[in-house]
Structures are given as C-alpha cells and as structure tokens.
Amino acid sequence: MTLTATRFDWVRQLVHRESAIVLAPGKEYLVEARLLPLARKMGLADVDQLVDAVRSRPRPDDTRQIVEALTTNETSWFRDGDPFTALTSTVLPALQSARGPAERLQIWSAACSSGQEAYTIAMLLEDAMPNAATRVSITATDISREMVERTRAGRFSQLEVNRGLPAPMLVRHFQRAGSEWEVSPTLRRMVATRECNLAAPLPRMGPFDVVYLRNVLIYFDLPTKQAILRRVRELMRPDGWLFLGAAETTLGVDDSWSRVVIGRTSAYRPLKGA
C-alpha cells in the first residue's frame, strides 16, 4: 500500500506552505510511516483516508498535527534557539529593571505540544536567576488534552531528550525514571498547564510579560490570525514581548505591534495607544 501521487502532492504542498520544508519525491514511505499513527488515532484505517478526510474538511488542528508529524522541529529543545537566547540576553534584563523585586514574571508557552518549549524556558531562567522558581511562573497551554497531560507529567523518552537538549542541562535538570527521563520537581512547579483553544475566546490568564506563540499562526486564515493576535495582546502587559515562529510575523496581519530585532530573531511588542 503506497500513498497515491495526488495525495502525496497534497501533503507536500501543505508541509511546504506551513513550514517551508520540502518533502522530496520518493518520501512517500516517510509520509506513510509518520502519518499512520495519526490516522489510527482519528479512527481511520490508513493515510489515504486521513488525507481525504482533512482535504474535504480542513480544520487547523488536524493540519497542524499532520505538519507536526512530518516536521521534526517541534520535538527538539533548543533547535532554532534564537528566541531562547533573546530571552536571557535582552528580555529578562529589561523586565528585571522594569519590575519590582517582588513581582512575579509571567510567561506563556502557547501551543506547548509535549512541553519542550515550556521546560526549555524554565531551565534557562532557573540557570539565569537565583530563586527562579519563586519569581517566575510559566503557563503552558495546548488545544490537545493529551499534549497538556504530557507536559504536566514532564516525562520524556530517550529519543526525545536526544533531540537538541544540551547534555549539561539534561544532567542538571532531569533524572532517569525507568526507561524515560523526568524533569526536576523544581521545574515542574514553575510550569502550570491548561487546555486552551487559541481560535476561541481565551480564559482569564496573565497578564503575561512574555508570550511564545511559535508556529501556530501559520495554520490559520487571515481573520483568525488577526483575532488570535488581538486576544493574545489583551492578555499581555503593555511592555511585554511576543515571540513568533521563524516563518511568522505580525507585519501585514495586525499593525498594533512593533518589531524589535534581537540578534538573529525578532520580538514583537504592543504599540502604545494602538
């Protein structure tokens, strides 16, 4: 059983549009292997049925899961590490001088997937400031209950900790738990999790000093992108910082943000009075 050429083409175009990654012809087997678990989870017999179902009734959550299954970035810790470098080099010093010592910094990892982003932020802050656990709270949200539960558990397979997590951070912040690795209780206490659909009205949270909303907007049409950015902005402090994915921008979508270049990445800040 191999994926038909038309269906493979549809997947190729989707992945290219959403992630800029090119799936070369001949990678049909890879698409099959990576999408079969997703098809089964949706109660479908094979990848052909999955492609047909999503093509005829596209939903952002389904297309996101397809792209995530086929692109490897989201399971990596520090790959595309510039938005993390910017946090400790620029954002944290700015926030520390603007806030009182007793004020708790609030950070949001929106669309947290299995939790690598939230715990990467937690590790960086724990290493960068004394008593980070009492001075920072990280909120990790995802639309998928399964992902939220995985994030809350803070357990990762051997293959997952092999993906872009620096070895010194692994030994500092993780312990073995059977055949898996478990993030330290200190880091888990810094991260609060909840289910959240970004495309619907958001629960009361924040206000956030920093928001990581990476590789989410690409899955939505323009009006939904605008609505998401507006809702995110309402949950942010006026001098907060927003990080988007490398292929995403507010430019041409929502003009109430100013773009700040930090090293090789950009952050977006709410424009005053916009």
């Binding site: 087997y29 079969l36 055949s179």
Partner: peptide, 17 residues
C-alpha cells in the same frame, strides 16, 4: 520496559516504521 527499549532501538536505528 524491555519491549519499549528494544522498540526504541529499532525505530531509531533500523527505521522509523
């Protein structure tokens, strides 16, 4: 656990399917 360890070795080294 033994099955999980063996399967991870196969998925990573022998092939992802």
């Amino acid at each position: 656990t033994v099955t999980e360890i063996t399967e991870q070795a196969w998925l990573a080294l022998v092939g992802e399917d």
